[in-house]
């Protein structure tokens, strides 16, 4: 009993020292691995030296910086063994062309086809831009709500994962996702989607798509860390999320998003 309250106090102390946080956590974790296991009843941490309760991951997309080069999509495919077929994907980039007659033309530039379907006359274009899409890692995820066996769930650090060994492949989550972020993996026959490269981020690395983005259009960070790039991104930009009326509370934040984007 005494030990527990001591650890609690210790943790409180650490969280108060928010600025030098990472260093302290690591130091504590290496000497006393038990301290990181705050919420696990068995008193053991799932990931060594990593405390999920102290992180909350999110992504920012700077629409004005995206050049539609598809590096992110290719990196994701490699990093996560995403099927090569263009109709299964964890992330993709959309091109929006709004013509002067206000008609909107959208295409997925990540499906391996060469160039736009129709060459657009430049003089007709009112505005045009690229929008990267991925799983929004919602705070209120409809996919988690509908999964009949609880195979998909939100982690404590705010990522929605899928248990590929328990998913029965019913496809209800695919129907429930408003963003089209999920697909049924043709090999495992279970649902699959973006995990924010969970295996990378818990090691302090960036998701593969963010790592390779040449223009910094994708910003990744920890909402619980005031020094993270994402928090700065949120402070410096007007933020919008996709389909806010569905009350999913996405954690992929778009800066300078056009109203035509759905």
């Amino acid at each position: 009993m005494y030990r527990r309250s001591f650890l609690k106090g210790l943790l409180w102390f650490i969280s108060a020292r928010i600025f030098s946080r990472n260093g302290v956590t690591r130091a504590i974790a290496s000497t006393n691995p038990d301290t990181t296991a705050t919420t696990h009843a068995n008193g053991k941490s799932i990931i060594k030296g990593y405390d999920p309760t102290r992180h909350r991951y999110a992504m920012g997309i700077d629409v004005d910086k995206c050049i539609g080069c598809n590096r992110c999509v290719e990196a994701c495919t490699v990093e996560n063994d995403v099927p090569p077929e263009p109709f299964f994907t964890r992330t993709w980039v959309e091109r929006y062309v709004i013509k002067k007659d206000k008609s909107v033309h959208v295409e997925n530039i990540s499906n391996g086809s060469d160039g736009p379907k129709e060459r657009l006359e430049e003089a007709d274009i009112l505005r045009s831009f690229f929008v990267p899409k991925l799983c929004n890692q919602c705070e209120n995820p409809p996919c988690v709500q509908v999964c009949p066996v609880g195979a998909t769930f939100s982690t404590e650090d705010g990522v929605v994962l899928i248990d590929s060994e328990r998913c029965i492949g019913c496809g209800y989550c695919i129907q429930a996702c408003p963003y089209g972020a999920r697909y049924l993996h043709p090999k495992t026959r279970t649902a699959d989607k973006c995990t924010f490269c969970y295996h990378r981020i818990v090691k302090g690395m960036l998701p593969a798509c963010v790592e390779v983005c040449p223009t910094g259009a994708r910003v990744f960070g920890d909402l619980k860390n005031r020094a993270s790039r994402l928090v700065r991104f949120e402070r410096m930009n007007k933020i919008h999320v996709l389909k806010p009326h569905l009350n999913t509370h996405p954690k992929v934040y778009y800066a300078d998003l056009d109203g035509e984007v759905r």
């Binding site: 696990h40 009843a41 799932i46 990931i47 990196a75 490699v78 990093e79 996560n80 609880g150 195979a151 769930f153 982690t155 994962l161 899928i162 248990d163 590929s164 060994e165 328990r166 995990t195 969970y198 295996h199 990378r200 818990v202 090691k203 690395m205 960036l206 593969a208 790592e211 390779v212």
Partner: peptide, 23 residues
């Protein structure tokens, strides 16, 4: 035990191979 299932999922996720080393 849903909790055990989740923990093993997280462990499996974390064990995945990193392909991009980071700049």
């Amino acid at each position: 035990e849903t909790r055990l299932h989740r923990e093993s999922t997280i462990q499996r996720e974390v064990a995945k191979q990193v392909k991009f080393a980071g700049t």
